[in-house]
Design a binder for these strands. Sequence first.
DNA 1: ACAAGTACTTACAATTTTGTTACTATTCTA
DNA 2: TAGAATAGTAACAAAATTGTAAGTACTTGT
Lengths: 124, 124
Amino acid sequence: MKETETGIEITLEIVCGKWKGLILWKLLHENPMRFNQLRREIDGEISSRILSRELRKLTDDGLIERIDYEMVPPKVEYRITPYGKTTASFLASMNEWGLEHKRMSTSKKEMARLINKKTQDELC
Amino acid sequence: MKETETGIEITLEIVCGKWKGLILWKLLHENPMRFNQLRREIDGEISSRILSRELRKLTDDGLIERIDYEMVPPKVEYRITPYGKTTASFLASMNEWGLEHKRMSTSKKEMARLINKKTQDELC
DNA sequence: ACAAGTACTTACAATTTTGTTACTATTCTA
DNA sequence: TAGAATAGTAACAAAATTGTAAGTACTTGT
């Protein structure tokens, strides 16, 4: 009877939090990436400890893989797996929505007021 | 030079956490809803305190609105705003992804193994 | 008369997430 | 010879999120 059981919970489990979505998004666009490279390129400065943790979570979930070249100084690459690549579907629409609503106004509340008002006007 | 600035952060700010995505998703499918009705219909049991908080956040962000009928016993309806409706775009793809990867396997890790392995085989 | 339902709120506590700082061993560069 | 870079980890702390229990004022049903 329920045709709208929620896959959203499942997706949120993976992508939720401040960083995991961003990391996946980065790796979707530039595939193997090294640790510090990721650190630098993620906007908003992530600490190495946090990045390390998030990467491990993503690895445990099979979305990315860790390739350790076992050299000194260390070289480790992270690359998105085929499974990880499937997240592109929803990450792309999340990104689009975000960009759209950033372009239109800096303030979320302002934005909401505008859209809501506009549609109200149309109804009259 | 950057054409992949991230709207994802913005979207995550709104939809992140355990509940906000689910609440929006519910309201997208059954529009005005009362407080306890929402509480009952959200899988995984949300406490009234949490629901109340999440609803206020969504209201503050202009995604839903609160209609208080000012009667006793109290009757309050929550309905999604036009702005809130725009979230359907990404919520739908999140839902789809989640369902797909729930159907295919109960365990995320198992799932990852299968997909990753399959693609590897194809490459050989 | 009593329980249950309405939409919450308050006070408190546990849990999770996120962060900072300092440190490792080694190599390359100035 | 000093400093930077590599990919982290350990110890610790703050902040955010989520939760529980109890209560409000009133009505409806048994």
